[in-house]
Design a protein around this nucleic acid. Structure first.
Length: 235
DNA sequence: AATACGATCAACCGCAATGCT
DNA sequence: GAGCATTGCGGTTGATCGTAT
């Protein structure tokens, strides 16, 4: 069955994305790029709508997304552009590289709107420890400087071409191309690094203008590793 | 300790715009 | 130009958290 917009309905999963689903989507896009959101989920082994996949990628998984608190400068930019553009969140997001429209929209409704209405806002971090983006130092967040040999993680890089399609460069070959979805959930940083290493072997990399540090931070912050995981990490 | 409440944010929904045949 | 598929956008919802009582 299809909706009026052509997307499959029924038997599609909804709600929060699991780590495994994230991995499948990242894995697929890394290998094949974004060619058709509607058909991609089937080939990626995901029981999600194309819309859901796109949203997840755009708002959460894209490697150049910035995570963490908005800076004062970003706040000023949002206020400024909102005064000009109104609720055109995607237009505002384009003015703030690394921020998604959804993130800006949420930040506006939860924080800035109140300040505009002259209600002083006391920022208290109440982040969740799984899917939430890290905000304060109280969060269980580990930056790359916390981890030995973290520079190795800059081995992993995606690039965006003129059509906004993310590709891996160069294409995976041999055992890399055989990399499949049936990989267990990464319990530690080490496990996750193995996952990424299989996708992006050092010798095959080409670097470009994607902010590698942001991508690196995203990988660690995404999964909010606990102390045990970090201390056991040795790459 | 238990419960209620408010804040936050990921994800969904409906619709409009755009592209393709 | 019509009809359908796909993409993108903005509003809204619901789950989950921390805090207050």
């Amino acid at each position: 069955m299809r909706t009026s917009k052509g997307e499959m309905k029924g038997s599609l999963k909804k709600g929060a994305w699991s780590l495994e689903e994230d991995r499948k989507l990242i894995n697929y896009i890394s290998r094949y790029g974004i060619w058709n959101w509607s058909h991609m989920p089937k080939y990626a082994g995901l029981l999600r709508s194309g819309k859901s996949c796109r949203l997840r990628w755009v708002n959460y998984l894209k490697p150049d997304l910035k995570k963490g608190c908005f800076t004062e400068e970003e706040e000023r930019s949002i206020l400024h552009f909102h005064s000009i553009l109104g609720n055109r969140w995607s237009a505002i997001a384009r003015k703030l590289p690394g921020r998604s429209d959804n993130e800006i929209k949420n930040y506006w409704h939860t924080t800035l709107k109140k300040s505009v209405e002259n209600k002083p806002v006391i920022k208290v971090s109440k982040k969740k420890n799984t899917n939430m983006s890290p905000c304060s130092e109280s969060q269980n967040v580990y930056k790359k400087e916390d981890i030995n040999h973290a520079n190795d993680m800059t081995d992993f890089i995606l690039y965006e071409d003129d059509n906004s399609i993310f590709n891996l460069s160069p294409p995976l070959q041999g055992h890399q191309a055989e990399f499949t979805d049936d990989i267990g959930s990464p319990g530690t940083v080490e496990d996750l690094q193995c996952f990424w290493r299989e996708l992006y072997p050092l010798e095959d990399l080409e670097f470009n203008n994607i902010n590698q540090e942001l991508f690196l931070d995203n990988i660690f912050q995404e999964y909010s590793y606990d102390d045990t995981s970090i201390s056991s990490c040795s790459f």
